[in-house]
Design a protein around this nucleic acid. Structure first.
Lengths: 249, 249
DNA sequence: AAGTGGTCTAGACCACTAT
DNA sequence: TAGTGGTCTAGACCACTTT
């Protein structure tokens, strides 16, 4: 049986066999040897052609499927998947990079005070209205340009001061990189397109009515209790998200 | 040595062993048995405790790492990862769902005409200025509500009519689901926050100056030639993206 | 019946880290 | 040196699809 092993696997390479095989297959797809809808060689054939074990081939196929490049159907085969916009994802690390270069990033604490929760805040934090919460406003600047405005309501528990939580969130750095210890277990995020209000525009040194991203977050602790409700706001001309779909090369 | 096998793996279950073990470990993390920064039991211990082979444990650990729940360090161990905003991803399938229920979705072709490429279009499509391109405007409505406005410039090649490409892009359905055959290999996407211009607001039955998402796309064919440049625009009050970070439960 | 993907075993060897 | 994660083998059995 003719097996199209257009390239061989270098066992002496530092690049693992599975990575090499994945690259080979993606290259063949990219080159149009296998087109969308085509069936890839069966796993048994790939084992023989590239002289690797079934588990290694399996791993490679799994990778291609996870990457949205192929789709595997039990009993039928593995097929090249056409480009699909629905599989596209954009990563929030575009935001993280604000904090990555600590050199040029400054987090300024604009305000910290204890307030009574209004109706919406109380509802979202699962507390009773008028219960006291910590309100924090921060401004994150990049090279002197204000880029992110953050407002946050933190549960205020006199029993257990929120120092720990506040500490890490003051710099916000740990929150993005996932580096620090954390009392937070999970969170819900919501991204919307919005328009800068007067106060937001003033703080961000931008114009009222300008386009902006709003990222709303609610974080929960290990008891599944809401701990923090807040919003990041960034002018549309200072933030965007890039990504790609299909096989780039 | 005490091994905390808080749950057992049911070999008769239809749920594979690796999925069961992953669920068990995530549950233990969620319950706070293992906290951020803690070291998980070594893979050897997990093999013994749950009576599975090393490869199966390895697969589970890989899953946890890919899901951002843990981080593995060779020679040291596998550690529970604190919640990190930077790892969050937003899926574009929120857009796809516009097309998923063909029942309530209607794609209306507003305009198709052949025009000369202006400077920006020519540059982005790697063609010479004034070369002819196909300009298409579409409106996607959901339950009678106009939700997406799409403008697109397609390379016009008299040799090879763009019927194929245009066909699939007319309904746009295949483009999102990745279902149809495709001449497109890959694409670059850019998401911005913007403001509706007069014409956009008119078409979308919204207000000029309202917040909106803009998704710019460039698609390339299997010769890596740009084929399509376009923009989806959706009013901010009709589209948003949700996601979560950490271990939700 | 033959071929396909999906799961799993029971080891092996290696690279790295800590002691 | 002992323990850890990382890769890989050479099979096995199963579920499913096609012929």
């Amino acid at each position: 049986m003719g097996i199209p092993a257009t390239a061989k696997i270098d066992r002496k390479s530092y690049e693992p066999a599975y990575a090499q095989l994945a690259k080979i297959l993606k290259r063949q797809i990219s080159d149009g040897i296998y087109r969308p809808g085509d069936r890839l060689p069966s796993e048994a054939k790939l084992c023989e052609a590239y002289d690797v074990s079934p588990m290694t081939v399996r791993r490679v196929v799994n990778m291609l499927v996870e990457q949205g490049v192929a789709v595997a159907e039990q009993g039928r085969g593995t097929f090249v998947k056409p480009l699909g916009l629905g599989t596209a994802v954009f990563h929030l690390d575009a935001l993280q990079q604000f904090f990555d270069d600590a050199e040029n990033t400054r987090v300024k604490l604009l305000e910290t005070r204890i307030v009574s929760a209004d109706e919406r805040t109380a509802r979202k934090l699962s507390i009773s209205q008028n219960q006291r919460v910590v309100f924090i406003r921060r401004l994150i600047s990049q090279n002197g340009i204000p880029s992110l405005y953050h407002r946050e309501y933190l549960i205020y528990d006199p029993e257990r001061p929120i120092i720990e939580a506040e500490m890490e969130v003051t710099s916000l750095r740990g929150l993005f990189s996932g580096a620090s210890e954390s009392t937070l277990k999970w969170g819900n995020l919501l991204i919307e397109a919005t328009i800068l209000r007067d106060e937001e525009a003033r703080v961000l040194n931008s114009q009222s009515g300008a386009a902006a991203f709003r990222l709303e977050h609610i974080f929960y602790d290990f008891d599944n209790q809401p701990l923090s409700l807040g919003w990041f706001i960034s002018p549309g001309d200072r933030l965007h998200f890039k990504t790609s779909v299909g096989i780039q090369e």
